[in-house]
Amino acid sequence: MTEKIAFERPKPLADRATHYCPGCSHGIVHRLVAETLQDMDLVENTIAVSAIGCSVFLYNYIMVDTVEAPHGRAPAVATGVKRARPDRFVFTYQGDGDLASIGMAEIMHCANRGERVSVVFVNNTIYGMTGGQMAPTTLVGQKTTTCPSGRCRDSEGMPIRMAEIIASLGGTAYASRVAVDTIKHLNQAKKALRKAFEVQVNGLGFGFVEFLATCPTNWKMSSIDANKRIAEEMIPYFPLGDFKDVTTGKGVC
């Protein structure tokens, strides 16, 4: 009987243990990024921009040329990289504290200018590395170390829906929200990521994918329960799907 390898570690993903907690979605998103770079034959043409947060160590796991950006500034750094080397593939990998709070100005203007870069945005509704503080995406009622009674709409505002905001900007070619909780969603996620990379490669504009992800440690949940929370609590507030796709005309005014 013949057999083939149906699944193995993609080559751009380093063969080493990660520092991530058990069940953390970063490992899944890292793998999807590495697979997509490999599938699109971009590995040796890529310059990545890592951000601040748990994923700052991106460069230890995805083996491509990488520059580390200050907190929130990855889209500005990526702008500098892309303008300096327009023929290179450039992506940032940012969490929700990095992108939707301290880096809000940078992400908005990078998208609005239509920089030919792709952004991998991991939304787990919390600051992971610093110990579970409230994020701009923390759901109403969600308890964190800085909103111990749960996020309150009156004093902390509503969680920010980034994919929709990014889709509304003129330079955005593709903006989508995906989740990593089920096999079906993982397949959709990979397609979305590929599209966000393709719009850059084809010079169409800015590509953005928001991944709904877990942080079992700071959510104080088991990995399995954390995964269930994506479907039960996150997706109802953060709907999945493409919010803009210039290749199909979706979301284009």
């Binding site: 310059i47 500005a76 500098g80 303008r83 300096a84 080397r85 100005a105 940078e106 908005m108 203007h109």
Partner: peptide, 25 residues
């Protein structure tokens, strides 16, 4: 390339990005 950045913060970080590519900026 000329970019009018959204802020001084962003402009300096764009400089960082271009510098990482070894381009005089």
């Amino acid at each position: 390339q000329f970019v009018q950045a959204e802020s001084e913060v962003a402009a300096a970080n764009m400089l960082l990005g271009a510098a990482a590519c070894g381009v005089r900026a």
